[in-house]
């Protein structure tokens, strides 16, 4: 069973995000880059399936050279090989273009399963998974919290409000991971040392015969509005306080 995991490198969720001078991208000076946490669930699940069923786990990432660090992290967790599609302009590119590029890199690897996170924590688009499935012509199983691999098929669970959907699909399939799928392992020290010697293939867009031009572009990034100061309701008695509160809710907040 060959499993491919597509990973994206994103700013650590503890990083303070600042908007760059162009008003369309984020300032990358002080960012600590990490593997998208949802993709980590994919790496972990792939390693667990590999342990049970054998085969190979290959991680694929697209972006600037720094993405190598996240690929090495996946190798240190236990993945066997890595592929980097290196291009400085890929971070923040149109998700459809990214999906097409990933599909071109993944297809020759002939995977039985392709894992990735249900969304990336930076742009929250959630587009690459379904688009990748489309480009690879595979079933798309999204927002998955449980995976059981059968003979030529896979059964997954997707939580929906108040219940769980059980979905079955033939393999190969694209599965996008939701929180709760598993607890990703930490890289071990021996794993880190071994990762240095594992193969990491670097490809360019030209190698794949593609470019990063997409149909959508980010017009502007704006920070969330600053929170206004709270208001203290005053009054001598409980009745007066309640009356003042009701007045404020009606006249100022206009909610009643």
């Amino acid at each position: 069973m060959n499993i491919v995991v597509c990973i994206k490198q994103v700013p650590d969720t503890e990083t303070q995000i600042k908007i760059a001078g162009d008003g369309k991208t984020i300032a990358t000076d002080d960012i600590k880059w990490v593997m998208n946490p949802y993709d980590e669930f994919g790496v972990e699940e792939a390693l667990r399936i590999q342990k049970a069923k054998g085969g190979e786990v290959i991680v694929v990432g697209a972006g600037p050279k720094r993405v190598t660090e996240s690929l090495r992290t996946a190798l240190a967790m236990g993945a066997d090989k890595a592929v980097l599609i290196e291009d400085d302009g890929l971070y923040g590119a149109d998700p459809l273009a990214v999906a097409k590029i990933l599909a071109a890199a993944v297809k020759p690897l002939s995977p039985d399963i392709v894992f990735l996170g249900m969304r990336a924590v930076d742009d929250d688009a959630g587009l690459v998974g379904p688009a990748l499935a489309e480009f690879l012509d595979m079933p798309n199983l999204s927002v998955v919290t449980k995976v059981e691999v059968g003979e030529g098929s896979v059964t997954v669970q997707r939580p929906v409000e108040g219940q769980t959907l059980v979905l079955e699909a033939s393999l190969p399939a694209v599965i996008s991971a939701q929180k709760g799928l598993n607890e990703p392992r930490y890289a071990s020290l021996p794993g880190i040392m071994k990762a240095k010697k594992k193969p990491l293939e670097v490809k360019t867009l030209a190698d794949l015969g593609l470019d990063k031009a997409g149909k959508a572009e980010i017009a502007a990034l704006t920070p969330p509005p600053a929170r206004a100061a709270g208001k203290t309701i005053s009054g001598e008695t409980a009745q007066e306080l309640a009356a003042n509160l009701a007045k404020a809710l009606r006249e100022e907040a206009k909610v009643i």
């Binding site: 090495r72 992290t73 240190a76 890289a187 020290l189 880190i192 040392m193 990762a195 240095k196």
Partner: peptide
């Protein structure tokens, strides 16, 4: 001799995550 900055960073990064 088998160590370098890259492996130190990864180890430190893992320790910080734990």
């Amino acid at each position: 001799a088998d160590h370098d900055r890259e492996s130190f960073d990864m180890m430190l990064g893992t320790a910080l995550r734990i």
